[in-house]
């Protein structure tokens, strides 16, 4: 390539600077969680593990975490079933309105979260008369999680082709046996990757959650948001933030392992 030495150096510098901007705020949060001072003064006053202990002992925090896990698992389970079904239909069949199916599946994530949020809460509340609670949160999350499973399964089906399934049928296996012994094992890693993304999406969601959770239901993001503006809770919020940054390494590692070096995007 005919780039001058200066241009190359500048581009590399831009990359390094950009990555620094991406990581510095996360590092600040991590550092601050060990800050012995209550406020987020800079530089930190001293080192302490006191806030990590306080966060561990907080019952409200533990409840919120458990609610988030339940909501995430519920939404992921629904998304896995619906996303797989839709992906099979779109990839394996030709029918009228096939393109529209993809559009409808992407829509909940393409529209602003607040629109999806109030549309669903309005339907639960006024149209169906359902009380808002954990169940409505799961329904709301599942709606925008379907797309992650759908995309992953669709890509896998496209690469898989039909040869092995046809061979299985030729050897006498019926539709269900072929699915159990041939199709499903080949899709397993795509389902895991899609499910992982769905869980992460649900775990981090706050806007749709705000509108679909009743008064008593508090997911982790809602707990963080509620305590963000309370000065005496600041150190504990800091610890939760730091812990979430550290935990985000786990899905990245798993996604890397699953995709065999082909990093997954949302």
């Amino acid at each position: 390539m005919n780039l001058s030495r200066t241009a190359r150096t500048l581009l590399r510098a831009a990359l390094v600077a950009g990555l620094a901007v991406i990581y510095v705020p996360l590092a600040v949060v991590l550092l601050n969680s060990f800050n012995s001072d209550r406020t987020f003064s800079w530089p930190p006053a001293g080192f302490t593990l006191r806030w990590w202990g306080a966060a561990w002992d907080s019952a409200g925090l533990r409840d919120a975490l458990w609610t988030s896990v339940q909501a995430g698992l519920g939404a992921t389970a629904i998304a896995l079933v619906l996303g797989t079904m839709a992906a099979f239909a779109v990839q394996r069949y030709r029918f009228f309105g096939r393109e529209t199916v993809s559009l409808v599946i992407v829509l909940p994530i393409a529209l602003p979260g607040i629109v999806t949020g109030i549309a669903l809460s309005n339907t639960f509340h006024t149209v169906l008369g359902l009380p808002l609670g954990l169940l409505t949160v799961i329904v709301g999350h599942a709606t925008f999680c379907v797309v992650t499973v759908y995309n992953n399964v669709l890509a896998r089906l496209r690469r898989m082709g039909l040869n092995l399934e046809e061979a299985s049928a030729d050897l006498g296996a019926d539709t269900f046996t072929t699915f159990r012994l041939v199709t499903f094992p080949m899709m397993r890693s795509a389902l895991l990757a899609g499910g992982l993304l769905a869980f992460a999406l649900s775990f981090d969601e706050i806007i749709v959650t705000t509108f679909t959770a009743g008064a008593g239901v508090r997911t982790l993001p809602i707990w963080i948001f509620e305590n963000l503006f309370r000065p005496n809770q600041a150190p504990v919020v800091n610890v939760v933030a730091a812990a979430l940054i550290l935990l985000s390494v786990i899905p990245i590692y798993l996604a890397q392992r699953l995709s065999g070096g082909d990093p997954q995007t949302r």
């Binding site: 600040v28 979430l244 985000s248």
Partner: peptide
């Protein structure tokens, strides 16, 4: 390196 921060919570980053 670019993907990892996407997994860190949205609220956490705004909070940072």
């Amino acid at each position: 390196a670019v993907l990892t921060p996407l997994w860190a919570s949205y609220l956490v980053k705004a909070y940072a």
